[in-house]
Design a protein around this nucleic acid. Structure first.
Lengths: 189, 189, 189, 189
DNA sequence: AATGAATGAGGGTTCATTCAT
DNA sequence: GATGAATGAACCCTCATTCAT
């Protein structure tokens, strides 16, 4: 792993794994170094400090997630189908990548989360926002504020993926379909 | 504050405020002591260690929340009305008590959260669970697993309260009504 | 126990038991209070501080031991018999009272042990010293300095009792007899 | 001192000096750091915690002592001479290295002393045990249990060195010779 | 005489960060 | 680029002692 992605990547990956498993509290720079197979000092060559390491990780993970979800969008389809696809993709991606998902959830509740970071990250989600906004304009879904639309769809998706990761719920294809339907019904006009 | 509730209460309150504002990482026992207006040592007279302090705080807050929500239930009303009331109450309580809400959200993502704690806490929510389960039996709402029903209703409520607290959304009475309606439509049969 | 000996005695006894079992490090004033069944504060009514508590305990135990040993002396017997009796008594008393013995051994190696304490305590052992000194004058035993004579007899006795308490050696009557003989042979003229 | 032996050695030496002078209670990690001329944190780079630091120190000192004593053994000599040499060496080494000797005595009476440590340390003393055991087999000394033989010889030696270090006895060459003779007579057949 | 809440210094230990090599 | 020894502040917690009641 360390060979193909370089030290920069090894450090990010080690940080991700440690935080997703042991939380921010249990993730010291020296543990990151050990897990990444590098010296403690070299981390500061690639990242100016712990804050930047974690912020960069968060932004990268967020971009990866948005890309994976956007990649599945098919603009030739109806907005209704596109929105349902967004919900489904979010669940599936979050279930398939539990470490990244758990890390993002922890980040949101941590002091590392600053408004400026969210501003950066939100730009990645603009294509997704656009789908919802178009649907709002065409009066296909309810005229609710963006954060509410998100809470009713994508936040629900992540919430379920978290329970799947915790083992308290098994998200199979059938259940994903049903949940997607439920989310859709909450926002449809 | 310290005068009316005693040191035990001052310590819990100081802990709540610090964690809701600066997170677990930024909440040291000495800061708790300073904020509570007591010496560092006396905390260990009331709580055997930091874990117990935080667990006791969490359990207490969780009980308060469940009581405030359950208090509003009126069993003489239709299950549909009761469920909508549950969603509304959860939003309103979470909006009215942002510190407690943020603390609980942080707790869930922290290493302090252990299964045994959730077992304890879940008993407080049984009356709420019962409403949903009766509605499922009477085929008023969809036959989805409990965690899914929760994700589509109460989790959405907290998610919105969090955005309200962050200032990225203003939850007024009208919006609460609309959201309640949306949540209801996601689970209705 | 607490009833018959009073608080003063309960505190001393609790201190003895705690130190013999857990050492000085593991013996806090609050543990002493709990074990003695008294409040932490009252200890300072009977003893001005921890040092005095421990010193008083040491001096008392030392006096008890010396008395038990001296009580068995029979001045009508030969000096040879008297000296053998001293060794035997020391072993037997130390084996029968392991807590006191272990406490004294710990005390000697602790910072509580100050020359002035030993001066006090040595007066209790004067009758014992006198037996050895008379034997030296009558050239029954070797003309070695007092501390050497003690090391070859009473210190050996305590050393064996310590091993007995640790379980690495069982001191029965037969072995005590043999050891007494060995000690005697080391100092006899 | 720190320059020639490195920080690892400075820390061990500082620990030894502090414990021999002020006991375990008076030896905090920060005092060790100050005396060793290092920061408090670096100690944990060389030793995983206080226990390991002290255990490693004890084992090292014990090995040094056993080596110094064993080095003087001459197997070509009679067992009687060898045993007398063991007693003499033990006294001399203990007198020459009072800090190490006092540290070892404190260690034995401390909670750091665990059976496993003694097992490790006892292997260093096997060559010494063998001399006594051969003498027992050849019926040169009494058939007493090993711990008793030790109490009558090596323990006496340490006991005398302790008094020498305390200033209550001066062990010169002539006295060492006499004591060696006395010890020998206590165990000879 | 007696309680036990309260203090605050000090305990062992961890950790982000730096810097000589 | 890379190492890992080194720092020192901060962490959680314990404890002898005091004092209002």
């Amino acid at each position: 792993m360390g060979q193909t992605e370089g030290k920069h990547g090894s450090i990010l990956r080690a940080t991700l794994e440690l935080i997703s498993e042991h939380g921010f509290h249990g993730t010291s720079m020296s543990k990151v170094a050990k897990k990444a197979g590098v010296s403690a000092g070299i981390i500061y060559h690639y990242f100016s400090n712990k804050d930047e390491l974690i912020n960069e990780l968060y932004i990268g993970v967020k971009r990866d997630f948005s890309e994976m979800i956007i990649k599945r969008l098919d603009e030739s389809q109806s907005l209704r189908k596109q929105i349902r696809e967004l919900v489904k993709s979010t669940i599936e991606v979050s279930v398939r990548r539990p470490e990244e998902m758990l890390f993002m959830e922890q980040f949101l509740q941590s002091p590392y989360n600053r408004p400026q970071i969210q501003d950066t990250v939100n730009t990645y989600y603009e294509p997704i926002m656009n789908v919802f906004n178009k649907a709002k304009q065409e009066q296909i879904i309810k005229p609710l504020p963006d954060p509410v639309i998100f809470a009713l769809t994508l936040d629900v998706a992540v919430s379920l993926a978290k329970q799947h990761a915790a083992g308290s719920l098994h998200m199979d294809e059938e259940l994903i379909e049903k949940v997607t339907e439920a989310c859709w019904e909450s926002i449809r006009q």
